[in-house]
C-alpha cells in the first residue's frame, strides 16, 4: 500500500470535532426541503464518528441534492450529472484513508447514472452512498424521474407519468455483491442518523435510499407520508438498525433478518406500508478497492523493475 499520502502532519491527532466544525456556507435549498435535515444529520454523524474533515470526502453529481458537498467543511467533489460514483471510486481506489460519501438525486442515480450505480454496487468499494429520492427532477423543475409514481403529473408528462416507478432498493438488491441496503426518510432524523451510522461503520458500499421531501414539486407525495406515520413499517432485528426512539414513535414494527436476501427482496414488494430500516447486509461481499491494493515500491525499485522491462525488449 502506498502510504505516502497517509502521513498528514506527523503529530497524533488530538483534535475533537463538533458538528459546527463541519459547517460550510449557508445551504440554498427551498425552505422546508428535506435536504436540510439530511445535511444536519450528516454533520451529527461526522461529529459522532469524529471523522477528520480533511480526510472526509463528499462526492456528488448534479441536482439540488448534489449541492450537498458545498455546504460542508470537508473536501468535496461536485461532479457531473449521474457520474458521482466513478469519481468516488477513483478517489477511494488509491486512498483507503479517505472517508468517502456519495450524494445523488433519483434522476442522478437511477436514470442518467444507472449504469454506474449497478457497477458501483458490484464493485462494493468501502463508501457510503446516499440516494436523496424526492421522486422528481428538482433542479430542472419537475420532470418525471424513474421513481416518480405512476399517473403523477409532471412538466414532461402532464397527463401523468406512464410507467410504474422502479424501486431503487429492489434494483440494488438485484445486483450481485450488494452488501448493505437500507431505506430511511429525511423527516425521521433519529432513524436517518442510526441508519447513516450503521452504513458508515459497514465495510463495503452501503446504499441508503432516503425518502426526501421536496415541498416545491412533490409536496403532495411526501406530505401524506409525513402526516401518516402509520404508513411506515420499521424493520427491527438484532443485526439490523434498531433505535429505541424510533421504536417508541412508530406503531408498525416488524422483525426482518438482514442476512435474508429473499426476504429483503420480498419486502420491496410491500404495498401496504413503506418499510424503513436495513433490508440487507452481507459483510463477506468482495470489496474491489481492497482486492486491488497491491504492494508499493520505492522509486529506486520501480526504476530497477523498469530496467528489467527494457531488458525484455532490448535488441
Amino acid at each position: 500500500m502506498d502510504t505516502s499520502l497517509l502521513d498528514i502532519s506527523g503529530a497524533a491527532d488530538e483534535r475533537t470535532f463538533t458538528a459546527n466544525d463541519y459547517k460550510g456556507p449557508t445551504a440554498r435549498w427551498c425552505p422546508g426541503c428535506g435536504d436540510f435535515s439530511i445535511l444536519a444529520t450528516t454533520r451529527r454523524l461526522l461529529e459522532l464518528e469524529q471523522l477528520a474533515p480533511e480526510k472526509t470526502l463528499f462526492v456528488s453529481g448534479i441536482g439540488c441534492s448534489s449541492r450537498f458537498p458545498h455546504y460542508l467543511k470537508t473536501y468535496g467533489f461536485h461532479g457531473i450529472h449521474g457520474r458521482a460514483l466513478p469519481l468516488a471510486l477513483g478517489a477511494k481506489l488509491r486512498r483507503p484513508d479517505l472517508h468517502v460519501f456519495v450524494v445523488m438525486g433519483d434522476g442522478d442515480c437511477t436514470s442518467i447514472g444507472a449504469g454506474h450505480w449497478i457497477h458501483a454496487i458490484r464493485y462494493n468499494p468501502n463508501m457510503t452512498v446516499l440516494l436523496l429520492d424526492n421522486n422528481i427532477y428538482g433542479l430542472t423543475k419537475k420532470q418525471t424521474s424513474p421513481t416518480t409514481p405512476v399517473n403523477y403529473k409532471t412538466n414532461t408528462q402532464p397527463k401523468g407519468s406512464y410507467l410504474n416507478p422502479l424501486h431503487p432498493i429492489s434494483v440494488t438488491l438485484g445486483v450481485a455483491n450488494a452488501s448493505f441496503v437500507a431505506q430511511t426518510a429525511d423527516w425521521i432524523p433519529a432513524h436517518l442518523l442510526a441508519t447513516m451510522r450503521a452504513a458508515q461503520q459497514h465495510k463495503g458500499l452501503s446504499f441508503i435510499r432516503i425518502l426526501q421531501r421536496c415541498p416545491k414539486w412533490t409536496i403532495d407525495i411526501f406530505d401524506a407520508k409525513v402526516k401518516t406515520p402509520d404508513e411506515m413499517m420499521i424493520l427491527n432485528h438484532a443485526n439490523g438498525i434498531t433505535d429505541p426512539k424510533v421504536q417508541k414513535m412508530y406503531k408498525n414494527q416488524m422483525e426482518h433478518d438482514p442476512s435474508d436476501l429473499d426476504a429483503a427482496r420480498a419486502l420491496t414488494g410491500m404495498t401496504s406500508h413503506i418499510p424503513l430500516g436495513l433490508f440487507y447486509k452481507n459483510e463477506d461481499a468482495a470489496i474491489y478497492n481492497e482486492l486491488r491494493m497491491n504492494k508499493s515500491f520505492t522509486t529506486e525499485e520501480k526504476m530497477a523493475n523498469l530496467e528489467k522491462e527494457f531488458d525484455r525488449y532490448a535488441v
Binding site: 502506498d2 499520502l5 470526502l57 462526492v59 467533489f77 461532479g79 457520474r83 460514483l85 466513478p86 469519481l87 468516488a88 471510486l89 477513483g90 478517489a91 477511494k92 481506489l93 488509491r94 486512498r95 479517505l98 449504469g115 454506474h116 449497478i118 457497477h119 486491488r292 497491491n294 504492494k295 508499493s296 515500491f297 520501480k302 523493475n305 523498469l306
Partner: peptide, 26 residues
C-alpha cells in the same frame, strides 16, 4: 503489480475518465 500501479477496466468510457479524475483529485 511490479510498480504498485493499477489498470481499472471501468464499466464504460465515461466511468473510465471519471475514475481517473477521481484518482487525480486525491
Amino acid at each position: 503489480d511490479n510498480f504498485g500501479g493499477m489498470v481499472h477496466q471501468a464499466e464504460d468510457e465515461i466511468a473510465a475518465i471519471g475514475v481517473a479524475l477521481g484518482s487525480s483529485y486525491t
